Computed example of a mutant assay.
Amino acid sequence: MRKTSLGRSGVSVTGVSFGAAGLGNLGTEVSEEQARATLDAAWDAGIRYFDTAPHYGLGLSERRLGEALRHRPRAEFVVSTKVGRLLRPRSDTSGSDIANGFAVPATHERIWDFSAAGVRTSIEESLTRLGLDRIDVVYLHDPDHHEHQVFAEGYPELERLRDEGVIGAIGAGMNQTRMLDRFVRDTDVDVVLLAGRYTLLDQTALDSLLPDAFRRGVSVVIGGVFNSGLLAAPRSGATFDYAPAPSALLDRALRMETVCENHGVPLRAAALQFPFGHPAVSSVLVGARSAEEVRDAAALSARPLPAALWADLLCSGLLPAGVPLPTDLP
């Protein structure tokens, strides 16, 4: 699997990366055996970039990821985690965290903290949960409502940690483009992680974020390529950005699926490969909760897609004119 350096950092990631939110019991429980088999399958498929966060299952994702990787050759893989939510023990641990999306006991509460001290503390605690000697990439996680503190304290602290050699690359991860574009324009980030805003159905990132990132040499990792489900299986009841898909978007996804089927291609393959058409994109982050899902994603990413497929999506008006496509790259 091809590798690309993140910005000027020297940290290299595989084109397909593993999103470990599911291993934090996102939505439903995943057994320890299933989690380990999923991560082993990712390794066997050639994936060497793994992304997690304290938020995912109140640290469960980090613990499972670290346990699966700590016996692998450390120079061969890259791990990213995130800062912004500190985990603090709760006095009442009888409930569940499912209200926050994770099927785990509510043993801790999340405390928003993008201060310099909070950033350092979060990284130290993540290192403990991961059981690794270092974290390669650190993202400021969902700082939407903390813009002042992030730019005044959190981001400068990440720069200091990078200068100290504690972190290899720094960036921010969000599902909006405005603030990420500010990171690209006004800071020295190596990479930004964008979820759900550069897909077959949503090319918001083309307005400014992707062009600016390319000009400034900032890498972009794309997540949410299936828009939470609609582009994986466009059917009545499918979700778009974690809400029921509007009828117009469902119709568009179904029309895309028909075009893909006419070329003998699963819609999922086109959705997964589409972001690679832009030269700023270094990796596509795919969440998985089973070995079968990992193997499917790896196969879809490697599947040759005919140029005629992309041409038909353009000609039918399902993709806008001028959008960069995988066939445009040398």
Results as ranks from 00 to 15, higher is better:
204 T>R: 15
204 T>V: 10
205 A>F: 06
205 A>S: 05
206 L>S: 09
207 D>K: 14
207 D>L: 12
207 D>Y: 13
208 S>T: 13
210 L>M: 07
210 L>N: 08
211 P>K: 01
211 P>S: 00
212 D>H: 15
212 D>Y: 08
212 D>L: 15
213 A>G: 09
215 R>M: 12
215 R>K: 12
215 R>P: 06
216 R>Y: 04
216 R>H: 04
218 V>E: 07
218 V>K: 02
218 V>P: 04
218 V>R: 01
219 S>W: 05
219 S>D: 07
219 S>N: 00
219 S>R: 00
219 S>T: 06
219 S>Y: 05
220 V>A: 09
221 V>L: 15
222 I>L: 09
222 I>K: 06
222 I>D: 09
222 I>W: 02
222 I>S: 07
223 G>W: 04
223 G>A: 08
223 G>N: 07
223 G>V: 01
223 G>C: 01
224 G>Q: 03
224 G>H: 01
224 G>P: 02
224 G>D: 09
224 G>I: 05
224 G>E: 12
225 V>R: 10
225 V>P: 03
225 V>D: 10
226 F>P: 01
226 F>L: 00
226 F>H: 07
227 N>L: 00
227 N>Q: 14
227 N>F: 01
228 S>M: 08
229 G>D: 04
229 G>Y: 07
230 L>P: 04
230 L>F: 10
230 L>Y: 01
232 A>T: 06
232 A>V: 03
232 A>R: 11
233 A>Y: 11
234 P>D: 03
235 R>G: 00
236 S>W: 12
236 S>F: 10
236 S>N: 13
237 G>I: 04
237 G>K: 06
238 A>L: 11
238 A>E: 06
239 T>M: 12
239 T>E: 13
240 F>R: 13
241 D>G: 01
241 D>W: 03
241 D>F: 02
242 Y>H: 02
242 Y>G: 06
242 Y>I: 06
243 A>K: 15
244 P>E: 05
244 P>N: 07
245 A>K: 08
246 P>V: 03
247 S>I: 15
247 S>K: 15
248 A>C: 10
248 A>V: 15
249 L>N: 14
249 L>V: 14
249 L>Q: 14
250 L>T: 03
251 D>E: 14
